[in-house]
Design a protein around this nucleic acid. Structure first.
Lengths: 155, 155
DNA sequence: GGTCGCCTACTCGGATACGTAATGTCCGAGTCGGAATGG
DNA sequence: CCATTCCGACTCGGACATTACGTATCCGAGTAGGCGACC
């Protein structure tokens, strides 16, 4: 069970974009330079966030990415699932219905306890991430951080 | 973020082994036949559980696998981490210390809020799985299940 | 008939190929800003 | 001096190699039980 490396990238990028002022944008190249990341691959991930409706993209000179809605309305879960997909890590293939000890369809009306337990754990994980928004993250940074980020990122 | 397919296999196998009586064992071949799984690969996963101290293996004729300790002392988390490894899905590589916007080591004394949030979510997931033991799973099965499992599995 | 020894068959354990998905890179389509030009 | 037109450069978007991991398989070492021979 492993999240893509790019998860950390987009989380930090989203946090940086949240520190910009309304109307300002940052290009994929600027963000890649800011964190020393491979620019083309980072752009690919930012596109995924755009498709998910988390970021908005502008083309042309002075274009780039910005948050599609207020930082308080963007949760960690939304960002993570945008890059990794929203599929549960445990996929029940109903092996209890296969082989020598196969159960009848009648006996499988109830979801098997194993799958249910795994699903509950996944729900707990999702709830924990959904409880934290980008605004909550920004609130934990030093008060001077946004100005510094804007100056270095766009400079 | 995806768990190996074999996770479902070993969970079901562990549940089946928990239904055996003390002293009884089931070989990898028997378990593979019971669930219609590729025997050699299943054996590889059962070995991982043996190394983790969850199962005990006996060689020779009439040998096989059995639980290494009572079902109440084996949690879902222990089984899952035995096959998947115990590494957290989100690995913080401290990209905030790289690139144009790198923070000084002084400013990174505190773990970054993003990594902390991801770690808390992982803790919630682990706690949810650690709260359920194999004995809890067995308690949800029909009362006649153990006898049926033993008959088909060892027969 | 009992006991000892050997042998066979079955078990797990680790080392070895294959397929798929994430990682990393590239080039093309579209668009806005700016400069040069003409009025 | 101002408006217009054209050009250029920068942006995102999707399509293409490369690498690493999970999947699947095989063969070898070790052991307990069963059979036969011997006492």
């Amino acid at each position: 069970m492993k999240l893509p490396t790019s998860t950390e990238w987009v989380l930090h990028c989203a946090a940086s974009l949240a520190q910009l002022q309304p109307g300002e944008t940052a290009s994929a190249t600027q963000l890649a330079t800011y964190y020393d990341l491979p620019a083309p691959y980072l752009a690919k991930q930012l596109q995924a966030l755009t498709r998910a409706g988390i970021l908005a993209a502008s083309t042309g000179p002075r274009g780039g990415f910005r948050l599609a809605r207020p930082a308080a309305d963007i949760t960690m879960l939304q960002i993570v699932e945008a890059v990794d997909g929203a599929v549960a890590p445990y996929e029940c293939r109903e092996i209890r219905q296969q082989g020598r000890g196969a159960l009848s369809a009648e006996e499988c009306r109830e979801t098997c306890p194993l799958a249910r337990t795994m699903a509950e754990a996944h729900d707990a994980w999702r709830a924990s991430l959904a409880a934290v928004s980008l605004a909550d993250i920004l609130a934990e940074l030093p008060s001077g951080a946004p100005a510094r980020t804007r100056r270095i990122l766009t400079g």
